[in-house]
């Protein structure tokens, strides 16, 4: 079997940076004094010594009235109520699931916060506690919404909407959560016949548009959708979208439906999807996308 393998010298590596503007903000680094005045409030990424406020992370300053925060370029996902997330079930416990959401602590999905398949109402019985593993197993992927944040920072999730629930066939991509742009809607049906769920936690789910992620029906119907074959062309498109997202992430660009769609359109000049894995092609796609975004912003 012959395969296309390219090993590059370190000196030939591509710099993925697409930064164009020169008006950089002021950056702070750990230990740097942010302000010497006492009448400011200490926010995230800062700490107080004597009467001065110092930065604890490397990033830019955000100021809300008297509250000063330093936001790092990347960190773990910090959940907020209402965020859409994609997560993986780690553990089945008493009346709850533990879910990995790329945050600091594992998130919790309570049995009382899910809609059971078939839309039937839950009877609070020992029986449905025993049925939990049938519903969601270890390793299953789910989409959910953040319901509340506990005092220690861990998240409580819910799937009480038809939008959320177990995910079927598709591709999962993990990027740094800071690359995700917060939007009103994180479920997108792209014109190319692909649905994406851009989780606020940096997990992105790509699935063919025909496959709605939530199946309202009994177990047999669910199993049928699970096993449905995805056509070759759909898989090609999904792979293309995935490579486009990876290209944008490599160039540290913000991800939302617009940037993904632009990148997809720019990528169409590469006929073969696997060509998009070349660093030069990735940079090219990211650069053209950035250019189009800048153009739209200026309009």
């Amino acid at each position: 079997m012959t395969s296309h393998v390219k090993i590059r010298l370190a000196s030939e590596r591509v710099n993925h940076s697409v930064t164009t503007n020169n008006d950089l903000p002021r950056f702070y680094t750990p230990g740097e004094v942010v302000t010497g005045m006492e009448d400011f409030m200490r926010g995230h990424g800062t700490y107080a010594v004597d009467d001065s406020l110092k930065a604890a992370v490397a990033g830019v300053m955000q100021k809300v009235n008297k509250l000063i925060c330093i936001r790092p370029r990347k960190n773990r996902y910090v959940g907020e109520i209402g965020d859409v997330i994609v997560g993986r079930v780690l553990e089945v416990q008493q009346r709850r699931w533990k879910v990995d959401t790329n945050s600091r602590l594992d998130s919790v999905l309570q049995l009382s916060a899910v809609n059971l398949p078939g839309g039937e109402l839950r009877r609070r019985s020992a029986e449905d506690e025993q049925m939990m593993r049938k519903h969601l197993q270890e390793g299953d992927l789910i989409s959910a919404e953040v319901q509340s944040v506990f005092s220690d920072g861990s998240l409580s999730l819910h799937t009480r909407s038809l939008k959320y629930g177990k995910l079927g066939q598709g591709i999962l991509i993990k990027v740094f959560p800071s690359y995700i742009k917060r939007r009103k809607n994180h479920f997108h049906h792209l014109p190319c016949g692909i649905s994406v769920i851009i989780g606020n936690n940096g997990y992105i789910w790509i699935t063919p548009a025909g496959q709605t992620n939530v199946v309202e029906g009994d177990d047999d119907e669910m199993a049928a959708v699970e096993l449905q074959t995805v056509s070759r062309s759909d898989r090609d498109t999904m792979a293309r979208v995935r490579n486009c997202i990876m290209a944008l992430a490599a160039s540290k660009m913000m991800l939302d439906d617009t940037s993904i769609m632009f990148a997809y359109e720019e990528s169409l000049k590469y006929d073969d999807v696997k060509d998009l894995l070349d660093p030069e092609a990735m940079l090219d796609v990211a650069f053209l996308t950035q250019h189009r975004i800048n153009y739209v912003v200026e309009e």
């Binding site: 490397a58 990033g59 809300v64 370029r73 160039s251 913000m254 950035q290 975004i293 800048n294």
Partner: peptide
């Protein structure tokens, strides 16, 4: 390194 990863579309605008 911070400057390199800086793009215009960043929403680091102070709220």
């Amino acid at each position: 390194h911070l400057a390199e990863g800086w793009t215009k579309s960043d929403d680091a605008i102070t709220i």
